[in-house]
Amino acid sequence: MRTAYLYGWLITGIVLALVAACLFGSTPMSITRVMAAILGQAPAGDVIVIWEIRLPRALAALVVGAALGISGAALQGLLRNPLAEPGVLGVTASAALAATFTLYYGLAAGSAYILPMASIVGALGATSLLAIAAMRIRSVVTLILLGVGLSSFSAALMSLLLNLAPNPFSLSDMINWLLGSVANRSYDDLKITTPLILAGMIILFVTRRGLSALTLGEEAASGIGLDLRKQRIAVVLGAGLATGAAVALAGAIGFVGIVAPHIVRPFVGYDPARSLLPSALLAGMILVLADIGVRLLPTNTELKLGVVAALIGAPAFIWIAVQRRTIND
C-alpha cells in the first residue's frame, strides 16, 4: 500500500514538474497561454516554443534522470553499497570519454547513431570492468576506489583530448558536451536514445529479484538459488545500456543516481528490487526540476545541468558516505 502511495506521489510530481518545465523559460508565458499551447489552440509561435523546445527538453531531462536513477539503484544492489553509482564508479566518465572521442575525430557527423553507440560501448566497458573486479575484490570500499580511479583516468584522457583539440570550436563543442545539458534537445535525439534507455531499464527491472537476494551476501544469495553470473551480466548490460544512452543524450551528469535511491530506500523497506522504479521516477523528476532551476537562475550564461547536479549531488554524496547505515562491509 505504501508503495502505491509512493508511485502516486512520484507520478503526480513528474506531471507537475513537466507542466512547470513548459511554464518557465527565457520568454515568460502565462499559464493560460501555456495551456492553450499544450492543447494546440494558440499562435504557432507559442505552440513551437512549448512542443518543440520546452517539452522535448523536459522529457530529455526526465529520461536521462530515470536512466541514471535506475542504474544507480541497480549498481548499489549488485555491489551492495549505497555509494555505487554510474558517476562515482566512472561509468559516465567512460561513456563521455568514448563519446568525446567521436566528436574529436569528427566521427559523430557520419551518423546520428555513432555517438550514442560509442557512449554505450564506453559505459559497458566500464561496468564490465567493475563487475569483473567485483568478483575478485571482496571489499566494497576497494571497489569504489577502483571506480574513482577509473573515473580519474577517463577524466585524464578527456583532458588529453581537450588539450589536443585542433581548434577552439571543437574544444567548446567537447566542453559543452562534458558539462552535461539537455538544452536544445529535439524529438530526433530522444527517438534515438530513449529506446536504448528503455531496453536497459527493462533488463534491470527483469533481474530485480536477484538484487534482493544479494542483500544476504553473494555466498548466501547463491545458496538461496541465485545464478550470480547471470545476475552480474544482466546488471552490467542494463546499467551500461541505460547510462551510455543517457550520456549520449545529455553528456555527463553525475550524482543523481546516488541521491534518488538514497531518498527512496526507507519507503520501500530498503529492498533494492523495490527501489528500482521509484528511484528512476524520482531521479527523472529531480533532473526536470534542476533543469527548470538552470533556466530560472539569473546568470549571464545559462548554467549547465551537469554543473548544477554536481553542485547539489557531491555534498549529498559526502553526507551519505558519512551517514552510512550498513551492517557490514
Binding site: 551492495r80 553499497n81 529479484r209 534482493s212 537476494a213 544479494l214 542483500t215 544476504l216 551476501g217 555466498e219 548466501a220 545458496g223 538461496i224 538459488g225 541465485l226 530506500r265 523497506g269 530498503y270 529492498d271 533494492p272 547505515r325 550498513t326 551492517i327 557490514n328 562491509d329
Partner: peptide
C-alpha cells in the same frame, strides 16, 4: 545453506530477510 560469513547489505526488516528464503 547457511554460510559462515553472513554480511547483510541493507537494514531490511526481519520479515523480508526471512522471506528471501523463499527465493
Amino acid at each position: 545453506y547457511l554460510p559462515q560469513r553472513r554480511p547483510l547489505a541493507w537494514p531490511n526488516t526481519v520479515r523480508d530477510i526471512v522471506a528471501l528464503g523463499r527465493f
